[in-house]
Design a protein around this nucleic acid. Structure first.
Length: 787
RNA sequence: GGGCGCAUAGCUCAGUUGGUCAGAGCGCACGGUUCACAUCCGUGAGGUCAAAGGUUCAAGUCCUUUUGCGCCCACCA
């Protein structure tokens, strides 16, 4: 045991840098293949590298999973903690387009991909630097990129396997389409947005009579294929089966009936188009309506739009309204507020467009998905509802093809003649059909020789949904690899339950009939101090580098520990300061300990413990139990509270004050027992704080305990166990002694005396066993005579 | 419109199965400390636990209703 005195101040910046370097050099957190140790596998969310403004929220979300990782490592698990970077897909493309002001029609596909790759490298490095500063104990020799060859290979294999199993199909159908990103998207990519709009009342004629339709989307008039009325609506009953003329466009559409038309809504007359919304789609399918597809892939009107052809949706709307008005068709406008489905990546309202896409079957197996959801361990339990709610609201199969550039290519070619898909063989993966040769020279179905590649790329989630498979491929050893699936823990924020978690479950089901992970730990978001979302636009955040520089990793991690599972956490500078104070306090306790140790040697003897010693041991044992239980349930916030209480209130405020007189005494049994207890308890406290504040605890462990505890890193040392003591001392009434000490402290405080002031005599009101605790109380409070 | 969550001291939040739960930290006031403490310690003030009703011997803690906030879903004619 080291007993060199410590410098007066803890140099946080130096210590954190030192330990980062040592951990790196010593490969402290590197995964070791080991047959005997139980595994703990973390399937960490690969961050989108397209974030150039890292803040407390980013720190929080990754620190939270890391508390658990460090705890599990100390508990003896062989922790597998790789890190990925999600660098493919739409988010990255949009980021690059925006940053470099790129018009994708004026750049080649390969040039664009080059810029994306370059940008993702920068982004990955930014994240890596942050995680490194934070002390995220990832095994940096085990990383992957979702655009890299490994992820590409696994994602492509996944599709081949799904196709074999009949879960993947290609079909031409109306799909959700983002006119801004110019690609098909999936239902999970939708977001709701409140929108103020107008309902336009438009007259049209049916024979000699006039009808009024109400629509918020008059630009879809040239796509109108039918009008619907409720069969019970007396006003319109006689129109059923007749025809109406579409104003401005002068063509006839049938008037049909449907119970689903709300008599009260609008004018009670519904205009059905190709395809304005889900209702249109449904009517089109069930009633086999004509098709008048109007919206082009770029969100402009096609030739059906007549003189409005080529206009953007909003432009066409304005122009058509104005023309309706001019011609006397528009009789009224009403303000309405409704929710629009927009694409979550760009906020642009989505359209339905007829298109040929690849789909994974999900809509018909809701029961299956719900069953898996039930089998998962959700932390917190209540977040399972988010999952269930999503599954129940699924309407369509998962569209996984994207008409974009920067993503994993489909391992598919087509026969130019009969469109038969030709899949790559497994040995060919990873494959890029746009560059690589197809596995056959002619179509197996029709014998045609012209084979063309698939140009689409996969939905970014098509790759993310196989991360549990990707991470196990990072290990070469076959025997170990097989044990790395399913993962133990999937930590992620609640908004990607319906995407990342759900899709991963779907894939895992099709591939292995198994859950992809055992536990899901759901975190919330970091908010600003007022509870608002942190955003670049609002500028309501301190950049992460600045935070780290000013307060240090331990202090910020301390704040992040405060989040309740599944709940958002407000930024709170006071908590960060409290964290910093905790590191300083730990440092000072270490100084006190080392000052009083001199040539003391830690022994295993514990028979001479006194009442106060037994008391703090008992408190420690109780806290230890609570802390372990909290960590086991992923309740790091509760764990932190518990350790704080033990350390600040019980250990420093009471115990250290209780034993100062014994430490100052000349060498004797009592001093030895105090030193023994002091060092034992402090070691346990350091270890309990270690998952939360890895730097200060590592520093002090190495300064004091390295030789006696026997590990080169506290993070590789064992989680503390209960301290056993001989049961010859009954301390069940020790709280009375504490009450008595409180009473004397209060007396001194009220009299304006210092707590160290020596009182000649004091008349105690608290009833205590004077024979038992009298001497202790007198010594601990500096009272000569206790009455 | 449907579902879920939240509402506890000035601020940020803890409060397992109903009975020392009315708490912590920060902030504030007063005092003391500088031989562990870029401080720290002690003491203190502050809340009818959103509102109303109910169940119970007993309710922040269970039930009903109301209000406010947040999230998700639906309606988009």
């Amino acid at each position: 045991m080291n007993t060199e005195p410590l410098p007066k101040q803890y140099d946080r910046a130096v210590a954190e840098k030192k330990w980062r370097d040592i951990w790196k050099k010593e490969k402290t957190f590197q995964f070791k293949n080991n047959d005997n140790t139980p595994l703990y596998i973390v399937d960490t969310p690969p961050p989108y590298v397209s974030a150039d403004h890292l803040h407390a929220g980013h720190i929080m979300s990754y620190a939270q999973a890391e508390f658990i990782v460090r705890y599990k490592r100390m508990c003896g698990f062989n922790v597998f903690y790789p890190m990925g970077f999600d660098d493919n897909g739409l988010p990255t493309e949009r980021f690059v387009e925006k940053k470099y002001k790129i018009d994708k029609s004026k750049i080649t596909r390969s040039d664009f991909i080059k810029i994306c790759l370059k940008e993702t490298e920068i982004g990955a490095q930014t994240y890596k630097n942050l995680w490194d500063s934070l002390g995220i104990s990832v095994d940096w020799t085990k990383t992957y990129s979702t655009i890299g060859p490994l992820a590409t290979k696994i994602s492509q294999w996944s599709l081949l396997d799904l196709y074999k199993k009949g879960a993947l199909y290609r079909s031409e159908a109306p799909v959700l389409w983002c006119p801004s990103c110019k690609t098909a998207i999936a239902q999970a990519d939708l977001e709701d947005v409140e929108d103020d709009s107008k309902i336009n009342h438009i007259v049209c004629s049916s024979g000699s009579e006039q009808l009024t339709i109400a629509t918020s989307r008059p630009e879809l008039l040239p796509a109108c294929v039918a009008l619907y009325v409720n069969p019970n609506d007396k006003r319109y009953k006689h129109f059923i089966g007749k025809k109406a003329v579409v104003p401005l466009f002068d063509y006839e559409v049938p008037i049909l009936s449907s119970e689903k038309v709300d008599i009260e809504f609008g004018t009670g007359l519904m205009m059905v188009c190709t395809w304005g919304d889900k209702e249109d789609l449904e009517k089109w399918q069930t009633d086999k309506l004509a098709t008048r597809a109007l919206i082009r892939e770029d969100g402009r009107l096609n030739e059906l739009g007549g003189k409005y052809q080529g206009l953007k949706i909003e432009e066409a709307r304005a122009k058509i309204i104005s023309d309706l008005q001019k011609n006397g068709f528009l009789i009224k406008q009403e303000d309405i507020s409704h929710t629009l489905n927009v694409h979550e990546r760009c906020g642009v309202p989505v359209e339905f467009i007829l298109s040929k896409q690849w789909f994974i079957k999900i809509a018909d197996f809701k029961d299956k998905w719900l069953e898996y959801g039930k089998k998962l361990n959700w932390y917190p339990k209540t977040r399972q509802q988010d999952y269930d709610l999503w599954v129940n609201s699924i309407k369509w199969d998962w569209c996984i093809s994207r008409q974009r550039y920067y993503g994993v290519p489909f391992p598919v070619w087509y026969c130019k003649n009969c469109s038969e898909p030709i899949f790559a063989s497994e040995e060919m993966l990873p494959v890029n059909p746009m560059e690589d040769k197809p596995p056959v020279s002619s179509c197996l179905k029709c014998g045609h020789k012209e084979i063309v590649p698939e140009n689409d790329v996969m939905d970014t989630w098509a790759t993310s949904s196989v991360t549990p498979l990707i991470i196990r491929e990072l290990i070469a050893d076959e025997k170990t690899k097989i044990k790395l699936f399913p993962a133990t823990l999937r930590p992620n924020a609640f908004e990607i339950i319906r995407t990342w978690d759900f899709y991963t479950i779907v894939k895992s089901h099709y591939h292995f009939n198994n859950l992809p992970f055992r536990d899901v730990m759901i975190s919330g978001h970091g908010l600003d101090e007022h509870g608002r979302k942190i955003s670049k636009r609002l500028g309501n955040y301190i950049p992460s580098e600045k935070l780290l520089e000013e307060y240090g990793a331990d202090a910020i991690r301390y704040w992040a520990t405060g989040a309740t599972l599944g709940q958002n956490l407000r930024f709170n500078i006071q908590e960060i300061k409290k964290g910093k104070k905790t590191t300083i306090k730990l440092w000072n306790v270490a100084r006190l300990i080392l000052m009083s140790l001199e040539d003391f040697k830690l022994t295993k003897v514990s028979e001479d413990l006194e009442f106060a010693d037994c008391w703090i041991v008992q408190e420690l044992n109780q806290s230890l139990k609570n802390v372990s239980m909290a960590f086991d349930n992923y309740s790091y916030a509760k764990a932190k509270d518990e350790i704080d209480q033990l350390f600040w209130s019980k250990f420093t405020d009471y115990y250290l004050e209780f034993i100062k007189y014994r430490l100052a005494a000349s060498d004797n049994k009592s001093k030895k027992a105090a030193r023994y207890t002091l060092t034992k308890i402090f070691l346990a406290i350091l270890k309990m704080y270690a998952p939360i504040m890895p730097f200060i605890t590592e520093e002090l462990y190495n300064l004091i305990y390295k030789n006696s505890d026997g590990e080169k890193s506290i993070h590789l040392s064992d989680w503390p166990t209960e301290i056993t003591i001989k049961k010859d001392k009954d301390i069940s009434d020790f709280s009375q002694a504490i009450t008595a000490i409180d009473e004397i402290r209060k007396y001194k405080s009220e009299k304006g005396m210092s707590l160290g002031f020596e009182l000649e005599e004091y008349k105690l009101n608290t009833p205590i066993d004077k024979d038992k605790y009298g001497d202790f109380i007198k010594n601990a409070t500096k009272v000569k005579i206790l009455m």
